[in-house]
Design a protein around this nucleic acid. Structure first.
Lengths: 273, 273
DNA sequence: AGAAGTCGTTCGGCATCGTCGAACATCGGT
DNA sequence: ACCGATGTTCGACGATGCCGAACGACTTCT
């Protein structure tokens, strides 16, 4: 046990790595395949899988003998959502916001280098949309992620800027320096935008949500077709609605007043469209 | 290791029990509380929690020191859905079915004594509805559960009938004998109904889905207001649509022909309304 | 059709690793 | 300032999880 991070329980740590490997790999994985990916003995992986199977955290395909994630996993993920304070408090606000602007609303939290979507309200029109709850995207391609990052303490923000910044579209900002300047502007304005940086044709406007200590706990934003959300610069109506909602949501989370008022005039000058 | 179920890895098993305890208990639980609930030493629970925290499977509240499920849990639950074959293949069929009958569609699988909802399409009208994916209900109060149970081998069906059958509404069927007779009728008809047995005012019609070995893997059904779905006995249009969809879905799962044709005439006599 | 590779699985022994009780640090309410 | 509660660290014992070798079943080459 000379590990600098003292005393992690080996078998549990390995079990967790198996679950993540099953999640990120192909739908069904075999024992040998997992053993090689994790650098463990085949029989070790087998024992872990058998234990996880008894708990329905993984399932074994009765024919091929391969393993996949089990139904209990979904129940636990659902329980995470049920217990998530920001999500719970945002349900009503998100509905209201979606109806107000006529676009989809997303609530997300920073998790590692990605933004995890914890709530998603479809655009009010009844087009076919896929639910994104549980999905995650790189933080720098999402307005939710950028606005959360901009509100972070310096060291954590630097860490985010220092890591990998994959390019998803032609408009994804991958230069750390450009991104850093963008975050400063976002911190001043109190909201972030994203235009076709994640998906071509889609844009997003988001504002941060703070807890009772004034720390950022997530963000809420409006996502939709770029020409509607950011016709030339961000739509004023959308920006006002998002800021208003985020402010009320923050207050419901117990945030102190200083986050209520944003430092700029109600109508920030439009950025270059 | 005198345990009849040989060789489960103790620490992993305990970690799983901690996760389930966190999921089923209050939103945040303390170390001592969990230790007592699981009958373990406080420090043992602490070590397990610390390991789970490093993997983001649990989070610690920075103020109270209590623990809750972590964001990674949601990602894993989402991965389960992504890898779920029945769910993946049902996405399009469920949309089509929802539009055809104008009601909500649910796809569920039997998990223990409950039905786990793996897909849910909202009723096409744009009323406020909550997404039920990840939720679970007792098998005997859901048409999805009953139709799945009716297709099970005798011993597994008997196990379901033998256990607890909680009463959720005044119309919930809790008598194992009545339920057993109902399952026989369901097996003959090829579909199941449920009228206000889970939620007052709501009804459901469901049909089973089979895999390439002819085993039931889940069910798909239409849920909505009792007066529309089961005006007096099940709506013929809904029954035909559900059976048709389930049959096509089964075929897509590779099911053999014998499950395609249902043994009865296209219009089963209406049950007592 | 045989052979040679794969797969998931079982077994048993060595030593690692997880467990537990006592003691510590910290907080909150009296 | 006390007390009781919390989450946490430490150290030592021995139960426990790890691994290599071997098995049976299966697929896939030749």
């Amino acid at each position: 046990m000379s590990d600098p991070r003292r005393s992690t329980i080996q078998s549990v740590d390995r079990a967790a790595r198996i679950l993540k490997a099953l999640a990120s790999g192909p739908p069904r994985s075999g024992v040998s395949e997992l053993a090689e990916r994790l650098g463990l003995a085949k029989t070790t992986v087998h024992g872990l899988l058998r234990t996880l199977e008894r708990q329905s955290l993984v399932e074994q395909d009765t024919e091929t003998g391969k393993y996949r994630l089990g139904p209990e996993m979904l129940q636990l993920g659902n329980a995470f959502l049920d217990h998530h304070e920001l999500r719970g408090r945002s349900l009503l606000w998100a509905d209201t916001l979606a109806n107000r602007v006529g676009e989809a609303v997303r609530v997300g939290v920073l998790h590692g280098r990605r933004v995890l979507i914890v709530h998603h309200v479809f655009r009010p029109d009844d087009s076919v949309q896929i639910l994104e709850v549980g999905a995650s995207v790189p933080w720098h391609v999402s307005a939710l992620g950028k606005v959360h990052a901009a509100a972070l303490p310096n060291d954590r923000r630097r860490t985010l800027l220092a890591g990998a910044l994959p390019q998803l579209t032609g408009r994804t900002i991958t230069d750390p320096h450009v991104l850093a300047l963008g975050l400063e502007e976002i911190a001043r304005a109190g909201f972030a935008t994203e235009e076709q940086e994640a998906v071509i044709g889609e844009a997003e406007v988001a504002a941060p949500v703070f807890d009772h200590r004034g720390h950022p706990v997530g963000a809420i934003g409006v996502a939709g077709p770029a020409e509607r959300v950011m016709p030339r610069g961000p739509s004023d109506a959308v920006v006002v609605a998002v800021l208003d909602t985020a402010r009320r949501l923050s207050r419901e989370m117990g945030a102190p007043r200083r986050h209520d008022a944003r430092p700029h005039a109600p109508r920030p000058r439009a950025e270059a469209g």
